[in-house]
Design a protein around this nucleic acid. Sequence first.
DNA 1: TATTCAAACGATAATGATTCTCAATATAGA
DNA 2: TCTATATTGAGAATCATTATCGTTTGAATA
Lengths: 141, 141
Amino acid sequence: MDSEELRNAGLKVTTPRLKILTLLEKSAERHMTADTIYRLLVEGGEVIGLATVYRALAQFEAAGLITRHHFDSGQTVYELERGPHHDHIVCIRCGRVEEFYDKVIEERQREIAASLGFTLSDHALTLYGECNSQDCPGRQG
Amino acid sequence: MDSEELRNAGLKVTTPRLKILTLLEKSAERHMTADTIYRLLVEGGEVIGLATVYRALAQFEAAGLITRHHFDSGQTVYELERGPHHDHIVCIRCGRVEEFYDKVIEERQREIAASLGFTLSDHALTLYGECNSQDCPGRQG
DNA sequence: TATTCAAACGATAATGATTCTCAATATAGA
DNA sequence: TCTATATTGAGAATCATTATCGTTTGAATA
């Protein structure tokens, strides 16, 4: 249950936090901006403040429940942490986001950091390209 | 000369654009925010507007003269395009930025994109870690 | 279950980054 | 040099995010 997740994260269980967490879990779109989350909740009839959404997201991130990404569009999107680490590939036409994990790249990164005198603690890898989804506006045919 | 670069990029040669381009070339720090660029110019006695800096940077980026990065700090930094492609590693304590290029990772990326049905057009890879620079505040010893 | 108090809330003001507006100015070509 | 147009600087406007503040709520305890 979501209450458990919050308690385990050391956060007080409150109605707004549960609403946000539930939305993140149920939503088909896994990468959302704070404003999108806020709007979806309000449109769904919930009473919640935008500031609360930002506050909760910051706390969720600090607790490791969600991850924050800065794709090239410049906007900040949040993603629920589920399953193991992965990176992203974003379609530059339709914005679709796919996830992937590559052992080779992960290992190389650690080696590179070490060779430069860094202790690797995190990384952000995003590929950009054109997808061939049926719905992608830039698709030929 | 800088005028050449602008002309080749299809941009009119103007004083403000030359000032910005020159600063980017001469500055020791290769990754700067728009505001930093603006402030450095003003401190150097130049008369220039912040809006002009933003405009010029956007045009330079469109022309391929510079690249824009979004590191995890959330701020947008600009970097003069010189030499071949490279990725970045950022110290999470002191903010120092190093550059690197890795053939293995570059190749893997293309393979991954293809396997997911994408035609790769770009990517952003940034590693985060703790550096062992003499000046890094988090350094032990 | 009622009490209590710090933590969290919602509304909104404030901030910081970026973009827009517009009158004045500078550029490139005739 | 002259002209038409693009660019500029200053400041207003916008957008995302954070801070403020009086009110409400969660959870520990009586």
